[in-house]
Amino acid sequence: MQTTTPAPLIAVENVSRYFGQVVAIKDITMSVNAGEVMCLLGDNGAGKSTLIKLLSGVYRPSEGRILVDGTEVRFASPRDALTMGIATVYQDLAMIPLMSIARNFFLGSEPTKWVPPFRRFDVKRADRITREELAKMGIQVRDTSQPVGTLSGGERQSVAIARAVYFGARVLILDEPTAALGVKEAGVVLRYIAQARARGLGVIFITHNVHHAYPIGDRFTLLNRGRSYGTFAKSEVTREEVVSMMAGGEELEALGHELEEMARQDRDNAAALATAGREFTAEARDIERDAEDRTEPTA
């Protein structure tokens, strides 16, 4: 198989990770290729975080192998993974709110000029590159010296993605980038994920939100209770199948009703909204009537 297709950018083969008696993940196999969005889906506690920490060099696997470009590697630290082009953007810890956009962008890898001991941070170059790189991702900022705290959550994630891309990331690991975002904001981030894919990066998109994952994903790896249900191409699964696998077979019965609800909402959101609206109106009327009933005897 490796003879005809190029090796995946990064792959894990049968990896497991134990923490003492606890099996965090067991026998996971997955990979991501250049120009592809691999969605890593799973409910809370499914082992998503452990898996990305293995991929980004925070943990070492207890069993199994990690391969970069088809060669087995062993990351000693996140720095190791970074130098191999594997960049991780963490949900809350991507940016420092009080620092300017440009200073955040280059934190830890500042461009310098002059020679030591007069080596200095080339602020002008940092500003210019930040502006250019953000523009390439389609983000327009008024002023790169404004604090990151003045950006919206989605913009912050986008700047973090642009930074990873600029610093030579070939694989972008995004840890719940849309979790804390509103619908519109999440859309902005999803667009930058598509941009990164178009630029030939392999993206590992971790989420538990199928509605964010399904439109952008090319392949889906589903985790449940530390084990993998396997990897599916988009053509092989429907959104509903993905949702049901995420929740886990045993809980399927219990969730059945909820899933139908979701599916119907997807097909006909407007109708659902109208129904909800009518229900609310009815309820509001009830409450009003109750309130009148209660106030009248005392009046």
Partner: peptide, 25 residues
Amino acid sequence: LLRTPFGNWIFGVGGSIQAARNVGV
């Protein structure tokens, strides 16, 4: 503080030590 990489690290370490560590400071 304002014109060296070390100065940028000072802001980073004080702003969010975890984020600074993640990017290799």
